[in-house]
């Protein structure tokens, strides 16, 4: 077999592999795929909320610097923003998936809002309230994850 033939076969194989990968990545998710996206988004929001609780509590104990707290909240808010975008881009394939989305979306929005409240809190009372709210949201997100194993 000539070198040019081998190269053509290799190129065709690479093209097929690439096309397969592109199809796999870009096709709309089915019900199980959508549920996986929902759980990933819920997991990210849960982690961000839990991080907010930990950072907020340390702030109340004067255990962290303002610069650190700002960065930690920023990191958490970035993660939630990414999760929100991921959820918005995925199309629910059926009614059950839409119900799941409708349960998750407000919790993700609440996480973003409460993180913002904690980051902008000017006194301990406001920060304490934001931390309590984040704690509640983290628990609800945890329940959602456990309800959809």
């Amino acid at each position: 077999m000539k070198v040019i033939h081998r190269l053509m076969i290799a190129a065709a194989a690479a093209l097929l592999l690439w096309a397969g990968l592109a199809y796999q990545v870009s096709r709309p998710p089915d019900a199980s795929g959508y549920q996986r996206v929902v759980l990933q988004v819920a997991g990210t929001a849960h982690d961000a909320a839990a991080t907010g609780v930990l950072v907020g509590r340390q702030q109340l104990h004067r255990h962290v610097t303002d610069a650190f707290a700002t960065t930690a909240y920023d990191d958490a808010m970035k993660a939630v923003a990414g999760a929100e975008q991921k959820l918005a881009l995925a199309v629910a394939p059926d009614g059950t998936s839409a119900t799941l989305r409708d349960r998750l979306a407000p919790l993700v929005q609440a996480t973003a809002r409460e993180l913002s409240d904690a980051a902008g809190a000017g006194d301990d009372a406001t920060l304490g309230a934001a931390v309590a709210a984040l704690d509640g949201t983290a628990r609800q997100l945890d329940d959602l994850i456990e309800d959809n194993p």
Binding site: T51, V64, T71, A79
Partner: peptide, 16 residues
Amino acid sequence: QMSVDALSQVALPAAV
């Protein structure tokens, strides 16, 4: 039951 994906989170145990 949370994961870690930022350096700020890695530093938190030292602050706690």
